[in-house]
Design a protein around this nucleic acid. Structure first.
Length: 328
DNA sequence: ATGGTTTTTACTGCGTC
DNA sequence: GACGCGGTAAAAACCAT
């Protein structure tokens, strides 16, 4: 049984997000060529349909759109209360007292009322995070949220990571492990499952875990304990991001060629056992050669967190497998 | 723990600008 | 001389067993 954890039911952007995003994008045009923009939700990127320029890597959570224009929509969109979210430790269901000292009409409160509200806030906060699990969860979700922002990962990843962490907590997997480590591991797994992988090398600098291996260990633990069936990362998922990190004249040509090379590599079975980032880097470098782009091994290695040696080995194998150089 | 594989580190020589 | 590239050897990391 393939137990992919997703949060489709609870995703706040699920049913309304798509049309909303599409209609928003209609009004925007690509800076480079003026083409239409398309949101690649899988990769959390906004891409120009024509030239493929990535306009925005960090998907913005545009939040729920609660408008309904006919009875059908009203039916499908109707909810009781606010949407629940796994990014808050109580799923956003608890009382929240505004920090502003305003009443419902926006009028400023009197001094005594202000004092009263302050006391209520204090107590509300105490009840909200009453037991240790809640406090634990609150901290973990805060960490996950922070790291998601730092890494430019979208809300779906945050939700998924949140669900995973909850499961870890429910299954009593936390004792003896650090909250930060498990939260980071959940995020790593979630990013992979949402097809927006980030390598451990990328995650490590933004997390608050002091050793990189601990994350890896926790990740494996989670994956096996929760029965996640994690497939190896597809190197193609790194292409856009890495290419974007290089300043190229024809990024799209390079991307297409690199994609092709990776597909061939996959077909010829020279990819298994090799690091996905290294493969992606080598494909980009090789594509650069074929497309007459000036890309140095050093630069690709840098954006891909790999090394020149690895790129050399991989790209030669790939070109050989592809029977290149064939000029095109 | 162990052995096989892959990646990284460090160093070298070569050609070019 | 700096730079990009290719190769190598040895260390380190990784992975299945």
């Amino acid at each position: 049984m393939n137990q992919h954890i997703t949060t489709e039911e609870n995703s706040t952007t699920e049913d309304t997000g798509e049309d909303t995003v599409e209609s928003n994008l209609e009004y925007q045009a690509c800076d480079e060529c003026g083409g239409d923009l398309r949101e690649d939700e899988q990769h959390g990127e906004v891409i120009c349909e024509d030239c493929g320029l990535i306009i925005d890597e960090k998907a913005i959570d545009r939040g729920p759109e609660w408008r309904a224009f006919d009875s059908g929509e009203r039916e499908s969109k109707s909810r009781v209360g606010a949407p629940t979210t796994n990014t808050l430790h109580d799923k956003g269901l608890s009382t929240n007292i505004s920090w502003q000292d305003k009443d419902a009409y926006g009028n400023t409160l009197s001094a005594s009322q202000r004092q009263k509200m302050q006391r209520l806030r204090t107590w509300n906060e105490r009840f909200r995070t009453q037991d240790s699990k809640d406090r634990n969860l609150k901290q973990a979700l805060g960490e996950i949220s922070r790291m998601c922002s730092a890494l430019g990962l979208n809300n779906q990843v945050e939700e998924t990571a949140g669900v995973m962490y909850r499961r870890c907590l429910d299954e009593n997997m936390l004792p003896g492990r650090s909250i930060e480590g498990m939260a980071t591991a959940c995020l790593y797994a979630a990013a992979r499952q949402c097809n927006t992988p980030r390598s451990l090398d990328e995650i490590y600098p933004v997390c608050r875990v002091d050793n990189e291996k601990a994350i890896d260990r926790s990740y494996r633990y989670i994956a096996s304990e929760l029965g996640l069936e994690m497939e190896p990362v597809d190197p193609r998922q790194y292409l856009n991001r890495f290419i974007n990190g290089l300043e190229l004249d024809e990024p799209q040509a390079v991307r297409r060629t690199a994609e092709e090379l990776l597909s061939i590599a996959e077909r010829e079975n020279i990819h298994s056992g090799k690091s996905p980032t290294g493969l992606a880097a080598a494909a980009i470098y090789a594509a650069g050669l074929l497309e007459n782009e000036e890309i140095t091994q050093r630069k690709v290695a840098d954006v891909a967190n790999s090394t020149e040696v690895t790129i050399r080995n991989r790209y030669q194998e790939m070109l050989a497998a592809a029977d290149y150089p064939v000029s095109r």
